[in-house]
Write a protein that binds this DNA or RNA. Sequence first.
RNA 1: CGGGGUAUAGCGCAGCCCGGUAGCGCGGAAGUUUUGGGUACUUCAGGUCGCAGGUUCGAAUCCUGCUGCCCCGACCA
Length: 469
Amino acid sequence: MGSFGVIKSIRAPNVRFGARHFQSLRLMRLSRYFMPIARETPKEAEIVSHRLMLRTGMIRQEAAGIYAWLPLGLRVLTKISAIVREEQNRAGAIEVLMPTIQSADLWRESGRYEDYGKEMLRIKDRHDREMLYGPTNEEMITEIFRAYVRSYKDLPLNLYHIQWKFRDEVRPRFGVMRSREFLMKDAYSFDLDAAGSRRSYNKMFVAYLRTFARLGLTAIPMVADTGPIGGDLSHEFIILASTGESEVYCHKDFLSFAPPPADIAFDDADAMQAVVNKWTSLYAATSEKHDAAAFGALDPALQVSARGIEVGHIFYFGTKYSLPMKAVVNGPDGKEHAVHMGSYGIGPSRLAAALIEAGHDEAGIIWPDAVAPFAVGLANLKVGDSATDGACARIYSALGKAGVDVLYDDRDERPGAKFATMDLIGLPNQVIVGPKSLGEGKVEIKNRRSGARELISVEDAIVRFGGAA
RNA sequence: CGGGGUAUAGCGCAGCCCGGUAGCGCGGAAGUUUUGGGUACUUCAGGUCGCAGGUUCGAAUCCUGCUGCCCCGACCA
C-alpha cells in the first residue's frame, strides 16, 4: 500500500501542472498501458516481423492488408516518421498534407485513371461522382504546383507529405510489409530542366542514405525498374535481411560505407553528386536487373548475394505529368517550360516491419535506439517491496525528467514473465530492480542487443541512461 | 486472377468420418502457493460452433449456396 503511494506521487505532479500529455509520451507504467501481448503465435502470421508485431500488440488486423496501429506500434511508426521528416526537411523538402481521397477527374488528366487497373480503389460519393482512395499523389501535387507556380525563379521546389495510401493488392501478405493500406512519405521535386531535376534527385538520394543510417539500417541503392510511374532514372534502397522478399546482389564494400554526415551541404551540387557517385560506383542490383557476368567478374570474396527488402524508391520521370497536366513555368528565355519532376518514396509502416526483420532473435524484437518505442524498460521484480518500489520510483522519475522514454513494468507478475516481456518487445535497455541485487545497493542493467548485463548502483543507472544523478 | 486450405471461447486447437445439444491448453477473474527467466494447484466466468437455406424427431457434425481469412503462384512500395 505504501509503495503504491510512492508510485502515485510520480503521476500526481504531471496532472497538477498540466504536463500530463508531455510526460505520458515519455513515461508509461505497464499496469496502466494498453499493450496486449499474446503468448502464442497467431497462426496467420508467416514471417517473423508479422508474428512479432501481432504478439507484442503493435498492430491488429482489421481486414486483409488493413491494420490498426496500437500504442506500441504507433510509437515506433511515429518515431520512424519523425526521422524521415527531419531528413526531408534537412534536404530542403517542404512538408504538405494531401488528402487520401482524390477526384477521378484529376487522374483522367494524366491518363492514369484508365491505366491503373484494379489496384486502385474506386469510390463513388453521394452525388455519384467518381472518387478514389489515392494509391499515390503525382497528379495531385502537379495540380497544386501548376495552380501557383509560374516562374523558374520559384524553382527548385520539393514538396512532400506523409500520408496513408491504398493499393488494392490482389494478395496482401506479410503484415504491414505488404499491406493494402500503408503509410508513405512521398516527395515530389520540380525543376526547370533535366539537369536541375538531377540535382534534386541527388539531394533525395543523400537524404535517403542519412535516413536509413539513422534508423540503424544499412540500405544499399540499387538500380531499379521504373515501374508503372515511368521514367529513366531510378534507385531502390534495399536493406539486407535473411527473410527478405527478393534476391539481391552487391559489392561487399557497400556494407562498410559511411553515411553522409549531418552537416553535409545539400546546396553544394558537387558534394551531392560526389556522394551519389560513390554509392553508385560499385555493383548492386536486384534480381530483375542482375547482370550475372558483371557480378561474377568481381573477386568472389567481394560478392554479396543476399535477401533484401525494398524500403525506399526514388524516380526521375521528367515531364510525364507536367506535359499532359500543363504544369509549366516561364524560363529565363521568356518561354514556357514543362517542369521536370521526380518522386521519392519511403514507407514508414513497411519500415517498422523491415526493422524487425533486420533486428530480432528467438526471444523477440531488438529495436535500434532511434525508433525503439521506449529507450528503457524498467522492471520491478517485486512490486510491493518498499526497497524495489522506491528504487524504481527514483529511476522512473529521474529518467522522465531527463526526457528519456521509460516503460515501467510495475505489474504484479513473476520475474520470469517480466524478463520475457522485456525481451519480446525489444527495448534497447533494461533496468532490472530486484531485492537480491538491491540488497547490495545495485540494480542490473541489460543491453537487449548484446545481452550484456552489469550490476551498478541506482544513481549510476540513472546517469547511464541520460538522467541527472 | 488461377490453385489449395481453413472458419468451434480473447489466442492456439480437439470434436465432424460414425448426427444426440461442445471440450482442452494458454489468456481473464477469485484464492492458496511461489518470488531473479513465462511457478504449481483450486474455483469461476466466457461460445449466435462464419452466414443463409436444406435433410432429420434432433445438425458443430450430413447436403447446397454465400462470405471472411490464410498459403502457393502470377503481380507489387
